[in-house]
């Protein structure tokens, strides 16, 4: 038994990180910045999926919506309400931007869950660019809308004067950590979920634990579907929160 297990164990191959490798779409060779890679493929799959849902799905423009149109309307209504509730009415000007982010992330996460798929949002390069773009946009909006008044965000007037400098340091640090946590949260969730599924799938090679492993994979997969949506939701909602801070910096 022990020998068999040992034999099987040596046959086990865990490659949880292999699914994240970026490789050229056609042939081998180095990945230059312009090379069409699997990232390119899945990015445009996301664009096409969004196009299918939001444009083709609503082509009927029906008063009584079809199935795809009501999903598109639900997504529209959810993000619209989120922006209006959190960032306020003046934040609605940035609704297309927030909607684009939401659709991109939600489709990246869901398409990444397809077997053999590549998860674009599991890469820190991708989420980092998204988070940095949010950070820079929001900071720019803050300074353009409020001028120097935007710095009130860091100067907590409700606190006693003595501890305000300390709080200001903390606020500045937390402000600059925002893009980091914003991007790492999404990428980390995706990496972790996909890696865990891969590890469980690797255990399925051992006949004795295969049923358990398969059940675990199914369970993790269901959980990952939930996580895929929640992470997109959280990314969007945090974008709205940052937008609110930029538009109304006073605490």
């Amino acid at each position: 038994m022990a020998i068999e297990a040992q034999g099987e164990a040596t046959g086990l191959s865990f490659h949880p990180m292999e699914q994240f490798i970026v490789r050229p779409l056609f042939g081998d060779g180095p990945v230059h910045w312009y090379t069409p890679s699997n990232v390119t493929l899945w990015l445009f799959a996301i664009v096409l999926a969004t196009l299918a849902l939001l444009v083709l799905g609503t082509r009927g423009r029906a008063i009584v919506p079809s199935r795809s149109q009501s999903i598109a309307e639900m997504a529209y209504g959810m993000v619209h309400k989120m922006v209006a509730d959190i960032a306020g009415k003046d934040g609605l000007k940035y609704f297309p931007y927030v909607m684009t982010l939401f659709m991109f992330i939600v489709f990246a996460n869901f398409l990444g869950l397809l077997p053999m798929a590549f998860t674009v949002t599991s890469h820190i390069a991708v989420t980092g660019v998204l988070a940095l773009s949010v950070f820079l946009t929001v900071t720019a909006i803050g300074f353009i809308k409020n001028g120097a008044h935007f710095l009130d965000l860091f100067w907590v007037r409700s606190a006693p004067l003595a501890i305000r400098p300390v709080l200001a340091v903390i606020e500045v640090i937390s402000y600059f950590v925002r893009p980091v946590s914003h991007s790492i949260r999404l990428a980390g969730n995706m990496i972790a979920g996909h890696a865990v599924i891969k590890v469980f799938a690797g255990f399925a090679a051992i006949a004795a634990v295969a049923p358990v492993a398969i059940v675990a994979v199914v369970g993790m997969y269901a959980f990952e579907i939930l996580v895929a949506f929640i992470q997109a939701y959280v990314f969007t909602i945090l974008t709205c929160v940052y937008l609110k801070d930029a538009l109304h910096p006073s605490h």
Partner: peptide, 17 residues
């Protein structure tokens, strides 16, 4: 590579949306 294609895709997506 990732950043380049991401920017392209995001611009297209933003335009579509």
């Amino acid at each position: 590579n990732q950043i380049f294609w991401l920017v392209v895709a995001m611009v297209v997506l933003y335009w579509v949306v």
